[in-house]
Design a protein around this nucleic acid. Structure first.
Lengths: 211, 211, 211, 211
DNA sequence: AATGAATGAGCCTTCATTCAT
DNA sequence: CATGAATGAAGGCTCATTCAT
């Protein structure tokens, strides 16, 4: 009996995941505007009505998509943190490793970047409950926290660490955006290299004693 | 006869501009999603059909809007350059002034930021001919060139200046985005202050002799 | 020029009336549940979207339908009042004539009865603005006012006249409903005859002096 | 074996009643429009599919609901009749008591009124077999019969009693409807008071000897 | 150049109902 | 008997676009 319930639960979850995959795929193929319930359903091999067994409405799908994206982001960052711990890295190296973790994630998965920005700015109506919005915010913050802790470990006050972390995040996001929109080619530059430059300059700047 | 044709041309242009004004106003009021041809026409005092006398389709309107936005951006930057020339600023001060010009423009007109991002990433179908895309790119580049020249005037090689300018632009864009999406509040920071920090650090970094 | 505008106005009105006719016809044919915008459009020879040029939404159609129904009701009552005035009827006869006017209208046009009841009880969502609701209420009241005035002319105080008029209306409505739903056949009775009985009894009751 | 079948029959009936209870509850809570099979099933603790084990379709549920409503109506009337018998009421008092019984039932349970009207006029498609319709008619008639008998006991011929009973029913129904749709507020009147007035006037009218 | 009317494709969503398990 | 999954038709509505006048 229990096995049956469990199996059903698994089935259900996996079908929900299937719809989510379809949504992600449609989203990638047609962009946010073209991603209709009809299209998602078709991609998932369902009729539109069936989608509503798994998600309350269209925006819940995007909410789930974003939530899941943030989980993957955090997983990537956590992996970097653990690897760093195992390797016994210095604070400097830890900052570099954790910054590269989130930056690399978005560089490798530009659609996850889209998702975040679209959901955050484009969805007003009912989408993104305030509560959900906070949850997602928190998860983003979680992914950036290791950088902040590394900055503190390097001797910065909590305030300074927060400020530098914000600037670091902004810098990375700006580069990712330029790369993603193809704007960076216009400058003949490479986002990843520039991000490394920024981190290096930051590390240099935070070593006042060695001047 | 020729005078008549000319007058018609002028009329035509001015009415096209009128439609564009309406579009901008609607766009500001309702955002990119809420801006329909109907609404633009109403705002312009026309019926929907009339719009198609001036623009081939909806996305052409946005293209024109973006083009015009970039003209205003350039005007803002040019004004800063001229003021700097009149005041006889140093290269350092010139960099600060020109960087603040474009950053300030977007900070004050977030819809222009939307416009750029939306058109660049959101519009697949017919929007933005490749040719138009290049033109717009060039105008954006124009707005950033004074910064690049200031960097060269500070002694950087063309390559270095380009690299630093790209990084500067990315940093600003990242901050503007975080501000515009409300994400920066999550960090309890202020975009303008952080931008100034970045420019200051940059100036400091580029004065190696003074260490 | 003016003629042109006028002609357009007339055209527009007549097309709106055409949609209204279609709506009434669909409503009669399929009942309130089956009357969809699609169906109304089809009946009117339009595509669904076109309907929205003439009415803001579905319930506005029903609102207009009801408004127009109440106009016809009032026209019927007014006609009776005028005929009575021309014939110099006594208050007793006037009451009978005006009561018969509204009762007869609904007996002859049972769908108008449906309309009133459906719209009044079935439409919650956005239908029937409070304001419109009041307007319609007023028009219904208008149709019943001549009866009330006749009652006053027979010597009743305003309060008594209002009470008797309400009871009269309720009686008629009850009979019409029983007739319309076929329930009255169950009793082997005739609504019109029973209504006449009620009016006669009422007249009798209000002539205390003659006892 | 037979015992088993019987037990199953009982179970079946009781579960059917459970569904019906759920339907009634949903119907009261959400009205006729908002009552979906989904909602009824949820209320009953079933999944939608299970409902079809007990009822052929949605309208069969409403048919059963109406049937049951009429049973409750009859119970209310019967109770009044028995109480009257025990108290040894006069025919006049009996009329008043039995009339108040059915009127009070509907005044206190307006949803039962809805049910009757909805099923009778709103449901064309498959709802209400002719046969079922007759059965329901009969039960309604049953509930009104005590009034008719009281009228006969007061000396009216069967024909006259039927006519007066029909009028009485119509009057009550009209008042209930006005009350239920809020129309009666428009007149500043109270349905129950007006009903009492009608019954009093009726009693008076039927006592010719005492004039 | 502009209008007014209309189209048609599309949108999100709901729901009674079916059916294999 | 009951479930869980899914269907398919329909619902109201929006909108870019077309075209005769």
């Amino acid at each position: 009996m229990e096995a049956k319930l469990l199996r059903q639960q698994v089935m259900n979850d996996s079908r929900r995941a299937l719809v989510l995959d379809a949504a992600r795929s449609v989203f990638e193929r047609l962009g946010i505007e073209g991603a209709s319930i009809r299209e998602i359903a078709k991609q998932a091999g369902y009729t539109p009505g069936a989608i509503y067994s798994y998600f309350e409405n269209k925006e819940a799908i995007y909410g789930a998509l974003l939530a899941e994206s943030l989980e993957r982001l955090n997983a990537a960052v956590d992996a970097a943190v653990h690897a760093a711990g195992a390797a016994g890295l210095s604070p400097d190296e830890l900052l570099e490793a954790t910054a590269r973790a989130w930056f690399g994630f978005y560089a490798a998965n530009p659609r996850d970047l889209d998702l975040g920005f679209y959901l955050v700015q484009g969805m007003r109506p009912r989408g993104l409950t305030t509560e959900l919005n906070f949850q997602l915010n928190d998860r983003l913050h979680d992914a950036l926290r290791p950088c902040e802790e590394a900055l503190q470990a390097m001797g910065l006050s909590p305030d300074d660490a927060l400020r530098e972390n914000t600037a670091l995040f902004a810098h990375g996001v700006g580069l990712l955006l330029l790369q993603h929109t193809g704007r960076i080619r216009m400058f003949g530059q490479d986002a990843t290299a520039l991000f490394k430059n920024y981190v290096d300059a930051l590390l240099w700047r935070l070593r006042p004693a060695q001047h």
